[in-house]
Structures are given as C-alpha cells and as structure tokens.
C-alpha cells in the first residue's frame, strides 16, 4: 500500500471509531469526545489529499479552518454540558429527553 492509501485507511478508521462512539454513548461529554475523534480523521484525510495532489499548502490551510471550527464546537459543547449538569443534574441523554415515544 502507498502512503496515501495508509493515511486514508487510518482516516476512515478514525471516522468509524468516532461514529461508533456517537451511536452508542449516552453521556453528553462523551458525545463531544466522539465528535473530536471524527474530526481528527477528516484532518488526516485533508492533509493526505493535499500532499498527494502536490497542494500541501492548500490542504494545510483547510486543515487549520477545520481545527478552529472543531475547537469552537468543543468549547460550546462542553459549556452546554456543564450548564445541563447544573440545571438538570445529569449528563445522560436518555434522561434529558423530554419527549418519549
């Protein structure tokens, strides 16, 4: 396998691990962790694609945008989780659901 193929397989595996965490977890903070893992996979895929197409600078600039957006998502998600814990007393997504059906 070439370097790009190894990078792409690693990126897909990271996205898969993050998606698995998103599907099974019930904890609000763990949802943010799973999202972070998925974004790491996208980051690796962006830089690998940039290197493979000889446009590494473009890939890096896109990766920087992804890092900034990812950090803002993590900050807002964690602040939201802290407030939910203060108000509702739990981080369990099942217990937070108002509508049941």
């Amino acid at each position: 396998m070439s370097t790009l193929e190894i990078m792409l397989v690693s990126a897909f595996a990271l996205v898969g691990a993050g998606l698995y965490g998103l599907l099974i977890t019930r904890n609000l903070i763990k949802v943010v962790i799973a999202l972070q893992i998925m974004v790491k996979g996208a980051l690796v895929a962006l830089v690998a694609a940039g290197q493979a197409s000889d446009q590494l600078a473009l890939g890096q600039s896109l990766a920087m945008t992804v890092i900034v957006a990812d950090t803002v998502v993590a900050v807002i998600g964690l602040a939201f989780a802290v407030q939910v814990k203060r108000v509702r007393g739990t981080l369990d997504l099942r217990a937070l659901a108002e509508l049941r059906g």
Partner: peptide, 24 residues
C-alpha cells in the same frame, strides 16, 4: 507528512487546550 504548521497547531490546540478544557 510534511504539514509542519498544522502539526504544531494540532499539538498545541488539540492535545493541549482542548484537553485542559475537557479536564476543567
């Protein structure tokens, strides 16, 4: 892979700042 700038930013922001935020 040769992406030096992004690697440094990822190490400082992803492994540093975000981890501190999580622990907090």
């Amino acid at each position: 892979l040769g992406a030096r700038q992004v690697a440094v930013i990822e190490l400082s922001v992803g492994a540093g700042l975000v981890t501190v935020l999580f622990v907090f």
